[in-house]
Nucleic acid binder design. Sequence first.
DNA 1: TTATTTTGTTATACGATACAAAAATTATAT
DNA 2: ATATAATTTTTGTATCGTATAACAAAATAA
Lengths: 142, 142
Amino acid sequence: MPTPSMEDYIEIIYKLIEEKGYARVSDIAEMLAVHPSSVTKMVQKLDHEGYLIYEKYRGLILTSKGKKIGKTLVYRHDLLEQLLRMIGVKEENIYIDVEGIEHHLSWDSIDRIGDLVQLFEENPKILTELKGIQNKNEELNN
Amino acid sequence: MPTPSMEDYIEIIYKLIEEKGYARVSDIAEMLAVHPSSVTKMVQKLDHEGYLIYEKYRGLILTSKGKKIGKTLVYRHDLLEQLLRMIGVKEENIYIDVEGIEHHLSWDSIDRIGDLVQLFEENPKILTELKGIQNKNEELNN
DNA sequence: TTATTTTGTTATACGATACAAAAATTATAT
DNA sequence: ATATAATTTTTGTATCGTATAACAAAATAA
């Protein structure tokens, strides 16, 4: 099992490859706001553990194991972003919060959240009601 | 600002004091599933940072700062438990998941989740609909 | 091609957290 | 009151992820 930090890297690497076709150390470092040396170290670890193949100074590719995990990590991340957005969390908080919690939820919870998001999508009225409650609470706090 | 780990300790200490009147090192260690030596070290740190007053071999009490934070941490924990329970996460996963995520949510997210829980309480029908979706999805997975 | 800039790597150190074993303190039982 | 047990503390060690600084390689410009 990858650690939370390893998951961060795999997720970002998967996304970078998906979007740009490759993932360079400097890109990964920038996305995760860490130093390039930290990236090199982690990438070596991920290589050892079979999530990717790393050729130093040249680049890296995900193994099938890495790709599979990366895909589910991105799905999970997007799902959580969707939920927070739906319930009205401010954009500026969404990424950080998801980043924090995504590694700490069981797949049971993720699946239940999936159901919840589906419910909201099928019944947008519910979110309208939620807005109503929020406005009411808003007033009470003044 | 306390780190996630510090929050864990403050929360458990607050709860222990609330429930039993005092919090001993061994109790804290047991609740958090760490070794007593780790508790001692953290408690010393929490003392230095003004969350509690610690007299070695004797005991500890929360400062007003510690109490205030402890209270909000317990509220947050309970709210998250409530949400996961409502959406049908299995009991055996709830505590661990909450334990993992509680330290990583902004108060914006917590407040929005508060609204959501309130909505569910006021309109239990929504949760019935959710159950419906879950049963449907259940079948699809067979 | 050679010099320069950019990018990536290594070695080392640090901060936070935890464990294990030994030492110290306190509590309990006789 | 003293021996024993239970609890707590100290010390040393380990792990994990990150940062700094010195170095190496590759890309780019002249």
